[in-house]
Structure formats: C-alpha cells, structure tokens
Design a protein around this nucleic acid. Sequence first.
DNA 1: CTCTTGTGGTTTTAATTTGCAACCGATATA
DNA 2: TATATCGGTTGCAAATTAAAACCACAAGAG
Lengths: 157, 157
Amino acid sequence: MSDESGFAMAKRVSHQKSLCGVARPLDAIGDWWSLLIIRDAFDGLSRFGEFQKSLGLAKNILSARLRNLVSHGIMETIPASDGGPYQEYVLTAKGRSLFPVLVALRQWGEEFFFEPDEPHVMLVDKLNGIPVKRLQLHAEDGRVVDSTDTIIRFPVI
Amino acid sequence: MSDESGFAMAKRVSHQKSLCGVARPLDAIGDWWSLLIIRDAFDGLSRFGEFQKSLGLAKNILSARLRNLVSHGIMETIPASDGGPYQEYVLTAKGRSLFPVLVALRQWGEEFFFEPDEPHVMLVDKLNGIPVKRLQLHAEDGRVVDSTDTIIRFPVI
DNA sequence: CTCTTGTGGTTTTAATTTGCAACCGATATA
DNA sequence: TATATCGGTTGCAAATTAAAACCACAAGAG
C-alpha cells in the first residue's frame, strides 16, 4: 500500500484551515466501518476474526481500519485474554467516550428506520431490561435545550 | 451518472441480512460529508453555494450528497426565502432529530482533539452564552448509565 | 440588446479507494 | 509430517470519488 491506510476524507478534510470540533472526530474515526467496529467493540467483540465475521468486510479493509483506530488512540491492542498467541483489540478510555455518539445514532435509527411493529433490539438497562431514556441535551442550568436554543460560539465564561 | 448517487457503503452494508439500529442511520446519511452538511445546516446554512464554500468539496459531490439527504427525508428543498429563482436545502424534522448525534460528536471532539489551551468554539446556550452540559445517558429510573450498565437486547416490556 | 457575472448544477475524465482472492507465517491439531 | 486456523499482507480489477471543464439561467451593466 503506497499510502499508510488511505482515507480520502482524511486528506480532503485535513487540508482545510483548522478542523472544527465535529470534523476532527470524523477525521480520526476514519469511516463508517470504523463506527461499526466500535459498536461491535462496545458489544464485547475484540478479536480480528470476530469483527470480520460480524461485519463481513474484507480483511485488508478491517486491518487498515483497526490500525487507524489504534493509531488515533481509540482502540488499543492487548495480549489475548485467553493466553492465545494473538492480540485483542479493545476500546481505550477515549474510545469508550464515544458511547453517547453510538447511542444517539442508535436512538435516531430506532425512531426513524423501523416500522412501529418491526421488532428490533435496543439499548436496555442491564439491571431490569428496560430501555434507556432518550438522550437529551441540558443547558448549564438544567433546562432541556434543542438546536434552536443553542449556538456555536466562544463561550462567555 | 449510471448509479443514482453511488455509495459504496450503502451497497456493501445493505447486502447484510438486516441492518441494525446503528447501521441503518449510517446507510441513510451516506458519508462523512453528509454529516458536515447537516452540521452546517444546523448552523443556518441552506444554499448550495453556502455549503460548497463552507466545506470546500467538489460541486458534483455536494450535489450527490444533497440529493441523497433529500431522498432519505433528512433534508428537503424549499423555494428560496428571498424570492430568488433558486431553492434552499433545509433540515426536516427527521434531520433535526440528528441534533444529539452531532452534539455527541462535537463534545467528544472538544474533549479529545483540542489542547487544553487551544481556543475553540463550542455549543453554548443562546440565552447566556454558557456551554451546555455534557450529554448523559439515563436509565428509565433516572440513573446515569454508561456502556457497562447497558446491553443490546429485545426489551422485556 | 449584448456582455459579463453569479448561482446551481451536470458531464467528462483521471486518480483513489475498495474488495476479492491468493498468499504467507506462525501456531495448533491430527 | 500433513493440515487447518488465525491474523494478517500483497496484487489487481472494478467501483467510487474528486477536479475541472462545461452548461443553463437569471440579473445587471453599458
């Protein structure tokens, strides 16, 4: 591979003056596959073969994506927990902090991409099996706010 | 264009048995650019030229992405608000529901991709300019939960 | 009425990326 | 010793993307 791991977006976007708080994460994550890898990692998958079987993507692509995630500190490799000769890919703290992103995406998906009667898995509380609440954004004083109540700015500390 | 709008991921992923609640949204959104378009739409941009200038992507790509977002009901076209002969691209209710996804991504970006002293814009309360709270996931009973407290399952309603 | 400019695209073409398949080295297994 | 499995890498054809050129329409200038 002439390029380390070849991401069009990465190159395209990074020539921009300075990436904003939304573009930098996208740049680091790499692509859609990476997000699905991270989702699987949250579900407990950690071995190369597990990801490949779950996602059905080509091995060279998976290899490049994992390498990219590791290089951006989102995942890390550790010796196999079963003492086997292989390594495992697990989320770092930084990677685990992506949880709200995955949840938000999943909740949006559940709301708009399933028929009301279409059965589907969802994120539930381990303790009692009850679905979690919908994510809500709160202002500093506790009010629930949406996109019309907020704006992108330098904060007036 | 032989294909309607050509998305590798879309074809790749959709051959899987049935897309989960995370993959379906990704499939609909299309790609990274689309997410940045949506972010810009939240910031009030609506004209083709505005998006192109803001993102610096090729016009044919922007055209294809906008068409895809419209076809998935995330954005819609309306007559130009200034009475001009052109149209504007605005978020639908479905599109606006993506707000938490963008917020989660931005908050992650702010936490891990900026030096502590690096100045950057952030999402603030319009009323007082104070940054919003970090998104938190709550269980049905109100407890704050993280990835270790939850699991993907059919709910036990 | 003609010339020029700006907007909002489409078409053409070239470069990049993708994914399949084959291969490889290092264990395990028979 | 053969053979299979895991975790990849490499080569290559095919699909996708992006840059640039082109085009249509409207508005304004002269």
